[in-house]
Simulated scan of single mutants.
Amino acid sequence: MDDEPSTPGEKRLARLVMGGLVLFVAGLVGLVFLLVLLVTAAVFPDAVEFDGVLPVLWALLLMGPCAAVAMAITVPARALVRASLHPSPSVARVCDAAFGWLSAFLVGVMLLEWTPGVRAHSLLPAVAVATVGLLLEPLTDRLGDGKSKNGEAVGDGEDDGEAR
């Protein structure tokens, strides 16, 4: 029996469900990101000032564009470094972690600078968000590690040569 949607209605429903899941996960990641930012701001009250709750909503709206800008900077740089160094697997993991931290740091800096109603006096919240993200990455990797029906890891980054 084929599990793929066969009618246009089923395909549309499948896309809608996948889009909803992506938005849900992106929202959760955004909320965790902002929670770390707010906790850092509470622990270091001189670092950031908020003009109420509205800046939090603005930050949620700006998170996607900020992440896109950060990725537009770090993804090509990461590819260039990995292509020029031809690193071993352990060096590649360190390189990926460094660029992941840099990307999260850039998102934090952009949110601190571009969010209306937020006045940042320090980059400490951006450093904290990036560092927490780096520390949580192994946990998210473990949670995201899935197995396909034939026992191979899903999304392991290796191309098996099949057309997609």
Rank of each mutant, 00 (worst) to 15 (best):
residue 56 V to F: 15
residue 115 T to L: 08
residue 64 G to Q: 01
residue 48 V to A: 01
residue 26 A to L: 09
residue 74 T to S: 01
residue 101 W to K: 10
residue 43 V to R: 03
residue 97 A to C: 01
residue 88 S to Q: 12
residue 38 L to R: 04
residue 133 G to Y: 01
residue 105 F to P: 06
residue 75 V to D: 13
residue 65 P to A: 05
residue 93 R to L: 14
residue 88 S to H: 14
residue 81 V to R: 04
residue 56 V to C: 15
residue 103 S to W: 01
residue 100 G to V: 10
residue 121 H to F: 06
residue 146 G to P: 08
residue 127 V to F: 00
residue 37 L to S: 05
residue 3 D to R: 14
residue 80 L to S: 09
residue 89 P to Y: 08
residue 66 C to L: 13
residue 29 V to S: 09
residue 123 L to W: 02
residue 55 P to A: 07
residue 44 F to D: 08
residue 128 A to Q: 05
residue 54 L to S: 15
residue 97 A to K: 05
residue 20 G to T: 11
residue 20 G to F: 14
residue 134 L to C: 11
residue 8 P to A: 03
residue 116 P to I: 12
residue 95 C to Q: 10
residue 117 G to P: 08
residue 112 L to A: 07
residue 50 F to I: 03
residue 163 A to W: 06
residue 118 V to M: 14
residue 44 F to R: 10
residue 85 L to V: 15
residue 28 L to T: 02
residue 14 A to V: 06
residue 55 P to F: 00
residue 75 V to C: 08
residue 130 A to T: 05
residue 1 M to N: 08
residue 32 V to T: 13
residue 21 L to S: 14
residue 46 D to P: 08
residue 98 A to H: 13
residue 111 L to V: 00
residue 27 G to L: 14
residue 65 P to M: 04
residue 62 L to I: 03
residue 143 L to T: 02
residue 95 C to I: 15
residue 124 L to Q: 01
residue 100 G to Q: 03
residue 130 A to S: 14
residue 112 L to M: 06
residue 152 E to I: 15
residue 24 F to A: 15
residue 25 V to F: 07
residue 29 V to H: 09
residue 137 E to V: 13
residue 54 L to W: 09
residue 64 G to V: 14
residue 121 H to L: 10
residue 115 T to V: 00
residue 5 P to K: 11
residue 75 V to L: 03
residue 100 G to F: 09
residue 13 L to S: 12
residue 157 G to D: 08
residue 79 A to M: 12
residue 160 D to M: 06
residue 68 A to N: 04
residue 67 A to D: 01
residue 21 L to H: 06
residue 31 L to V: 13
residue 20 G to R: 04
residue 1 M to T: 12
residue 16 L to M: 11
residue 98 A to I: 11
residue 105 F to K: 02
residue 4 E to C: 06
residue 104 A to S: 09
residue 92 A to D: 09
residue 116 P to G: 08
residue 16 L to R: 09
residue 147 K to A: 12
residue 158 E to D: 03
residue 31 L to E: 14
residue 85 L to M: 15
residue 90 S to G: 11
residue 139 L to A: 15
residue 30 G to A: 10
residue 143 L to N: 12
residue 103 S to M: 03
residue 18 M to K: 15
residue 157 G to H: 11
residue 144 G to A: 05
residue 4 E to M: 13
